[in-house]
Nucleic acid binder design. Sequence first.
DNA 1: ATGGTTGCTTAGCAA
Length: 256
Amino acid sequence: MKVATWNVNSIRARKERVLGWLERAQPDVLCLQETKVEDAQFPRDEFRVAGYEVVLAGQKSYNGVAIAARRPLTDVVRGLDDGTDDPQARLIAATIDGVRILSAYVPNGQAVGSEKFSYKLAWLGRMRRYLDSRCDPQQPLVLAGDFNVAPEAIDVHDPRLWRGQVLFTVEERAALAQLRNFGLVDTYRRHHTEGGRFSWWDYRQLAFPKNLGVRIDHVFATPPLAEQSLHAEIDREARKGENPSDHAPVVAEFAD
DNA sequence: ATGGTTGCTTAGCAA
């Protein structure tokens, strides 16, 4: 099973590019983030023609997550569903071929010390409790998405510059580590030890051609599935050319 | 130096 995650920064702005990428990359599952559209406006039919069914948790203008898959999606659960009154569409889960798949869009956090930053840290805690209460680390599960956290110094282009900045603070990395303590393996790191491999580059200041990026999009898997991972890659090519998302897709393949 | 780019929605916010 080939599982991909991609923050597309609006599915309507990125539709042709995403469909073209599906055609070339042929993943079995694509977790999408920042679709920025209500479910009724999602281009569901075009995905179907391309061979993918979709399940959606969208909202107007902001956020929005989805899972596209070539095989049936069952047991769909939307949101963290933890009793808080939270309208932000940031999580969707479904089971595909016996694997629980979660597509997550972790809050950006905006600025250290801001309300949005507190919300981000709290959201990561809520995500951990979600896993504890609904999921089993001994079962095959993928948690993929835009986590808006670079785990290590080698995951930012300049650790000195990024020190204390949003996406790389000690607090955010600790919250992500706590989430991963549920029992999640970083499939990309399982296959790559080198630094300087990024999944997001700012649109501004020629950040992409200069490779001034950060690795914040991840495909995490529980140990029984991670042991089956054959390779994991960041598709840097998909960030090139006209009208790209500011994120590149991350892909992991697991033995069946 | 607080810049710069993109998307949604239409001037200002979010990323």
